[in-house]
Amino acid sequence: MIAAPEPLLSLRLSVDYPQKARVLRDVRLEIGQGEIVGLVGQSGSGKSTLALAILGLLEMKDGKAQGAIRFRGTDLLRLSEREMRTLRGSAIGLVLQSPLSSLNPALKIRTQLKEAWKAHRKGTRDECAGAIRNALASVSLPVEDEFQKRYPSQLSVGQAQRVLIAMAVLHRPALLVTDEATSALDVITQSEILALFARLKEESGMSILYISHDLPSVAGISHRTAILHEGEIVECAPTDQIFKRPSHPYTQRLIASLPEVPAGGTLPIVKTTAATR
């Protein structure tokens, strides 16, 4: 493991909600340039809260964060909403679980992509159209007008999730946070999307915080994995190590509850390399 000179993201975080205190308790996490970090936890463990906190959207749930979220050397918690806004969608992207409830059912996907583009860029119509085509192509979706004119209800779930990813990577963010991004998908689509994440990382060198309750899918993509349990990170180690030598009892229980590991002990890890420039 080669240590990066400075991680892209490094956080130390506690979060309270008005009705529920200490949803996250002194969570520490680092993500290096071009690294994929998995975050595993059961529902209610605080996974989504962490995603919201990184994007500075805790306010939507009236949450209060303490600590620091250092992103490229800046503490995000100290940024104003206005400054945070310029990072959201451009430097940090988010992909949520359910494409059907995250896409706007009332708008054509082109309109939604256009809005996402205009949120950070001023440019001609052609530049915008080009960016949209590129984004669609990069997630292996058709780029034709006919497709762009569709409403979310006219897409398959997999297509919709790709649209969501296309929007999230439209501005080539340095960090992509995916919150249960594959959980709603069938197994085949799920592996396709995982492969897509791996490819995107490969092509653009972005870092990915891959949040899921599903340990195998995390194992399939991440270099390192953190285990979140009741608001605390109980273990954080290279993915191999987590599977082979889980140290925390909770992690051990998690591993034990998995179906039999395929013979040979090899995990379906997508071959990736950490970007260490």
């Binding site: 919201l52 994007l55 959201r88 969608g89 451009s90 949520l96 706007n104 996402a116």
Partner: peptide, 8 residues
Amino acid sequence: LQARALGL
């Protein structure tokens, strides 16, 4: 939430 995360 998604739209905000996109910077809108």
